[in-house]
Design a binder for these strands. Structure first.
Length: 270
DNA sequence: CTAAGGACCTGTCGGC
DNA sequence: TGCCGACAGGTCCTTA
């Protein structure tokens, strides 16, 4: 489910209910996520006050004086604020109860997500080797072009590589390449600086617009407050193989690249 | 170092 | 209606 805009939408939805609240108790029903939820999570976080919720890449970081909880939603995870008497469903793996009487409920049917704890967020192996945030000023066309020099990998997996830039998932990668007019299979190192400027700009615009729209709705995505996202109607290519290109009317194509479905227009993208 | 493929899981959808 | 295969928003790990 979640790409970066969905994670950011979730963060904004839950933050008002959680920030400055004390964690009263943590209920873990299923520890077997991508990595097992460590006992250290309950041991260190229970009784702490959440000073703030940040996002880095697609990770949500719950900061306390004692350390940081690291939550990743994987492919199918979601969080929402509930009243704690709401019965837990099959895949509701964790509830975190707060002093205000509300609870954060984490659901993840496929269990590709993770919930970890660290007392040193700066050196955590999942976070310390990540590339720049796409919406930061450090990320721009010059940076992207520089990183691409000597790289033979196709541009689509290149921009989905978190060491290059974080937060560009499968949906938005196709969308950004369409806007920039770049063929998804073009080798990263063989794209001109000018076109990389267009691509970096497209990445910023698409992600920013998606955040403002509250994330993409595919199947049943909801923000933390239960409101659905509204971006799907704005997708130009993703999931539209065989349908007409909005720019030139040519039938859109689909190809598998790096085991991921990739959508593009043969005529508009070179 | 780079690039490619496998692995981890459950739910849903389309076709027969 | 039921069964079966294909596919799904992520990303770490292994292999070459």
């Amino acid at each position: 489910m979640p790409e970066l805009p969905e994670v950011e939408t979730s963060r904004r939805g839950i933050a008002p209910w959680i920030e400055q609240q004390r964690i009263m108790s943590i209920t873990v029903r299923e520890r077997r996520l991508r990595w097992p939820i460590p006992d250290a999570l309950e041991n260190n976080l229970t009784g702490q006050v959440v000073n703030g919720i940040r996002r880095r890449a697609k990770y949500l970081l719950f900061e306390t004086d004692n350390g940081t909880a690291i939550l990743h939603l994987g492919m199918s995870g979601s969080v929402r604020i509930i009243d704690p008497d709401e019965p837990a469903g099959k895949h509701d793996h964790v509830d975190i109860l707060f002093g205000n009487g509300k609870a954060l409920r984490f659901r993840d049917p496929r269990r590709f997500g993770s919930l970890l704890w660290t007392d040193d967020i700066e050196t955590h192996p999942l976070l310390c080797n990540l590339g720049p945030e796409p919406l930061d000023d450090i990320f721009d066309g010059s940076y992207l072009w520089q990183e691409a020099q000597g790289r033979r990998v196709a541009i689509k997996p290149f921009i989905m590589n978190a060491k290059v830039v974080v937060g560009v998932g499968n949906i938005y990668a196709s969308e950004c390449l369409f806007i920039a007019g770049i063929h998804p299979k073009r080798r990263a190192g063989r794209i001109s600086k000018v076109r990389m400027l267009a691509l970096a700009s497209a990445i910023k615009t698409v992600l920013q617009r998606a955040i403002e729209a509250g994330g993409t709705t595919l199947r049943d995505f909801h923000g933390g407050d239960g409101e659905p996202g509204y971006f799907q109607q704005q997708l130009d290519v993703y999931g539209r193989a065989g349908e007409p290109c909005r720019r030139c009317d040519h039938d859109l194509s689909m190809v598998v690249l790096g085991q991921r479905s990739t959508f593009y227009c043969k005529r508009c993208q070179r």
